[in-house]
């Protein structure tokens, strides 16, 4: 009974992935008529995809945006999370509560003024415009603050007695001690950036600037999408996150749970 339930759930969860891989080897009409066996069109699909989009450019753009945005987010958010936890004051607690309240403001409410601001700064269609608003992620700040509660106070005291300044304590004690927190946050942030859709869709307008996620979406939105090609593109777009997940599953789950503690 339990096994039946779990087996069905597992099958439903995994089937679309198999479908994706099989689909990449089939032609569009076969995909739409539900063919579940591998075909011979993989090579053709890849060739067609490379004719339609510049894969190298797309991957470069996606990687560049995800890497820069992850590094900046980790620095800014961990500094803030540490600061809010260690240097608590009545006022800083109030500011932090304000941040938490903003966590529930939907992106839709921000995107129009953000777009206007970016236009005024002449940043439309730049990667800077994609990265900047994601850097001060309240979610990641919150995550680091929660994690900082487990950073031993005595370690800070020991470092102060050892003559470290506050920034040295952060750099040489906090960061290395909390590296599993950083690992988890890296995964979450990287994936969020890699998979981000709405905001890049708004600010990135030319093909040379687009990310792989945007390219998949635009292939799909063609009047008559070629599903074989779309499936290949989707496989390629999903592969990096899938790999990260399998290699770093434990940190990934830890990263998700960090927000609940």
């Amino acid at each position: 009974m339990v096994y039946t339930l779990l087996s069905i759930a597992a099958f439903v969860s995994v089937f679309p992935f198999l479908w994706l891989i099989v689909g990449a080897t089939n032609i569009s009409s076969d995909i739409l008529s539900g063919k579940t066996t591998p075909g011979h069109a993989l090579f053709d699909n890849i060739v067609k995809l490379t004719q339609q989009v510049d894969l190298v450019q797309l991957f470069y753009n996606s990687t560049k945006i995800a890497v820069i945005s992850t590094i900046l987010t980790l620095i800014v958010a961990s500094l803030a999370g540490y600061g809010f936890e260690i240097f608590k004051s009545k006022f800083s607690e109030r500011v932090f509560a304000g941040l938490l309240a903003m966590l529930s403001v939907p992106f839709a409410a921000l995107m129009i003024p953000l777009f206007v601001t970016m236009a005024q700064l002449h940043l439309i269609n730049t990667h800077t415009a994609v990265i900047l608003p994601t850097v001060a992620s309240i979610f990641v700040i919150f995550y680091f603050r929660q994690a900082s509660k487990s950073f031993p106070m005595e370690l800070r005291d020991a470092a102060r007695v050892d003559g470290l300044r506050e920034w040295q304590i952060f750099l040489f004690v906090y960061m290395p001690v909390m590296r599993s927190t950083y690992a988890a946050a890296t995964i979450i942030t990287f994936m969020a950036s890699w998979n981000n859709y709405l905001w890049p869709l708004i600010v990135l307008q030319t093909n040379e600037m687009k990310t792989i996620t945007l390219a998949v979406a635009s292939l799909l939105s063609a009047y008559v999408p070629d599903y074989g090609v779309v499936m290949v593109a989707t496989t390629l777009a999903t592969l990096p996150t899938l790999l990260i997940f399998f290699i770093l599953q434990r940190q990934f789950v830890q990263g998700l749970l960090g927000s609940l503690k």
């Binding site: 031993p152 005595e154 370690l155 020991a158 001690v177």
Partner: peptide, 8 residues
């Protein structure tokens, strides 16, 4: 310190 506070 009581909990040693060694840098792990």
């Amino acid at each position: 310190f009581q909990s040693y506070a060694l840098y792990p």
